[in-house]
């Protein structure tokens, strides 16, 4: 169960954002479409608890994110929210497998090699286990980024423009993979994008 209520955020007096309420049940997907500069990333960061709203609330599994202390919020986010960013980031010094193990560690989970293999195989990059992430192709990197987001089986997956830098073929692949991964763990998936190509893939869509 994920719910936002009258979220409002301002960076300064000129740029203020007011966002529509969102409510998702477990296993539901949502596509949030919007043009650049309309506050898509801001909304995503609010929903992930990376930003504190000026007013309004974000609630996941009955926990109001911004009632938590900073450290508790970090740990809550690590356990229950998976994030996919526009450009994939990794810890450069580590291999793909070690990156995933680090994410497990940061969420306070014990190292689970089988889970790592399972996730990578389901994303079709199981053979890239020992590879350094920056040596992967762009499509592989985006899939590896999805692996980071889903490795801890989060309740909520938030994706920020996950397809904007991909070609049509990879774009629909990534969309399908995200949906597959979300349904595999029963997570709610929210994709925020300006990429109109994704419209066909999702029934549930709102436009900012």
């Amino acid at each position: 169960m994920f719910k936002t209520q009258s979220l409002f955020f301002t960076y300064n007096q000129q740029t203020a954002f007011r966002f529509p309420d969102i409510e998702l049940a477990a296993g539901e997907n949502l596509l949030v479409l919007g043009e650049s500069g309309i506050g898509k990333t801001t909304l995503l960061h609010l929903m992930a608890g990376l930003l504190r709203p000026k007013s309004g609330s974000v609630e996941l599994m009955g926990t109001v994110l911004h009632d938590l202390s900073s450290a508790r919020l970090d740990s809550f986010r690590g356990k229950h929210i998976g994030l996919v960013f526009q450009r994939p980031y990794f810890v450069q010094a580590l291999s793909l497998q070690e990156n995933l193990a680090l994410v497990q560690f940061l969420a306070g989970k014990s190292r689970d090699k089988n889970r790592i293999k399972e996730v990578l195989n389901s994303l079709g990059i199981g053979h890239k286990l020992q590879e350094k992430p920056h040596r992967l192709s762009q499509g592989e990197q985006q899939r590896a980024a999805i692996a980071l987001a889903v490795i801890n089986s989060p309740q909520l997956i938030l994706a920020d423009e996950p397809t904007s830098s991909l070609d049509d073929k990879n774009c629909s692949k990534v969309a399908i993979l995200l949906k597959e991964q979300a349904s595999a763990t029963g997570a709610q998936l929210i994709i925020i994008t300006h990429d109109q190509r994704l419209k066909d893939q999702f029934q549930n869509a709102i436009t900012l």
């Binding site: 450290a71 986010r77 690590g78 994030l83 960013f85 980031y89 990794f90 940061l106 980071l148």
Partner: peptide, 15 residues
């Protein structure tokens, strides 16, 4: 490694 640090924070690392 700024992004790495931010990334680790989003995955649950504390300050």
């Amino acid at each position: 490694r700024q992004y790495e640090m931010a990334l680790m924070r989003t995955y649950g690392a504390t300050r």
